[in-house]
Each structure stands twice: as C-alpha cells, then as structure tokens.
C-alpha cells in the first residue's frame, strides 16, 4: 500500500516545516494565549463589576465572539481591519495590515472571549472572605485583585487555561485560509508543490497529535500536583 509513497519528502522539507511553519504556529499560539489571557481577565473583571452597563457590554462581546465560527472571524478581520484602520486614522486608503498581525489580533480577540469565561469561573471560585480580608487590611480593589484574587484564580484555573491553549494550538491551523505558512500551511505548500498530499497531511496530523497528546499529559500531571497542594 505504501509502495508509491515517498516519505523522504518529509525529511527534505523538515527545516521549512519546523523552523518556518511550526515556529509561526507556536509564536501565534503563545502570543494569542498571552494576549487572550490579559484581555480575557479584563473582560472577566468587567463582567463581574458592579457597574451593570460594563458587565452587559462584556457579556455581549463574549456571546458575540462565541457564536461565530472562528474561520469566519479570521476572514472578516483580514478584510475588515484595513478599513477599520483607515476609518480610525482618517487615511485616504485602507491601511495595509500583514497577515500575521491580522491573525494575531483575531486570535487574541477570539480567545479573550473563551479565556474570560475561564477566569470568571476562577474568580468566582475564590470565597468571598478572601477579598473581604484583603479589604479589611486596607488593600484597594485593584490591589486585592492583583495580589489576592487573581493569583489564586489563575492557579486554580491553570489546567483549564492550558487545555484551552492546546485547543488554540490546533485552531491556529485555520489561518491557512489566509494562505499563511503556519505548520499546516507549510505542509500543505510542500504537498502541493511535490504532489505528495497523502504523505504530508499524514505527517501533519501525526505532529499535531503528538504535540497535543504530550501537552495534555503534562496538564494532567500538573492538575494532580495542584490538587495535592490545595
């Protein structure tokens, strides 16, 4: 069955696949997770704030992002961001935005919606007595969040946040719709150039599978360790 397959194509394209492709994928995953966590935490704080309007706005944002398919958001952003940029800066032409910037902004905004729900659950899991004790010591709301509530929420939610990041790692492959050479995009380019579709897509699947599996295993180990500490 494997007679007419040439797996040497993988060996020949390894540097391109991993240095360029996987490098891009990991960078996009890392930066999106970081940005998503920062914005997600801000959205979570807005949702939990006592200002109704702020909570409503944050809630709408989360619902909106979560009810759109990711591919659609990627597309939309890629074509819309130049025009939004033009509108914001008042330039005469649409602003040129690179595919990387565009996809990074998309993923941060998209992931922020998901991370915000995780952080919201994390913040709500902290007993009311903790912020009360912080307040009683004279800490301001911001200090209480920064030093008491968020570190605990983050630690409690770390396994869930990392699991979401693994999903994000897989989702970044959707940038192929913008013809960006992420790992899948790079594999796909080689596949089409050399006519080795089966080999390359098998290999790409294997790589995603192995990385995700190992990462999930790591998360489970971490979860067990956190459970003991608590």
């Amino acid at each position: 069955m494997f007679d007419n397959l040439d797996f040497d194509v993988i060996r020949r394209s390894l540097p391109y696949l991993f240095l360029d492709g996987m490098g891009f994928t990991l960078m996009l995953t890392g930066l999106s997770a970081l940005g998503g966590l920062v914005f997600g935490t801000m959205i979570a704080l807005m949702r939990l704030s006592s200002y109704r309007l702020m909570g409503r706005i944050a809630g709408l944002y989360v619902d909106f992002m979560r009810s759109l398919p990711l591919v659609l958001v990627i597309f939309w952003f890629y074509f819309l961001v130049p025009y939004i940029g033009q509108w914001l800066t008042g330039a005469s032409r649409p602003i040129r935005v690179g595919a990387f910037t565009s996809s990074l902004v998309t993923f941060i905004m998209f992931e922020a919606a998901y991370f915000s729900e995780i952080m919201r659950a994390g913040i709500q899991s902290i007993s009311k007595g903790q912020p009360a004790a912080a307040s009683a010591l004279g800490l301001t709301y911001a200090q209480s969040m920064r030093y008491i509530v968020l570190p605990q929420a983050f630690r409690n939610m770390l396994p869930v946040l990392l699991t979401q990041t693994i999903v994000l790692f897989q989702d970044t492959s959707l940038v192929y719709v913008l013809s960006i050479p992420d790992f899948l995009g790079a594999a796909s380019k080689v596949a089409q150039r050399d006519g080795r579709l089966v080999e390359m897509y098998l290999f790409a699947a294997l790589v995603y599978f192995v990385i995700s599996c190992v990462a999930s295993y790591g998360v489970r180990r971490l979860q067990a360790r956190i459970a003991i500490v608590r």
Binding site: S127, G129, Q130, A132, A133, I148, P151, Q152, R155
Partner: peptide
C-alpha cells in the same frame, strides 16, 4: 474573621 481568611497562596 471566623474562618481566618489567610491568603492560601
């Protein structure tokens, strides 16, 4: 407080 409320982290 009744339940101490030390910061566990």
């Amino acid at each position: 407080f009744q339940h101490f409320e030390l910061f566990p982290h």
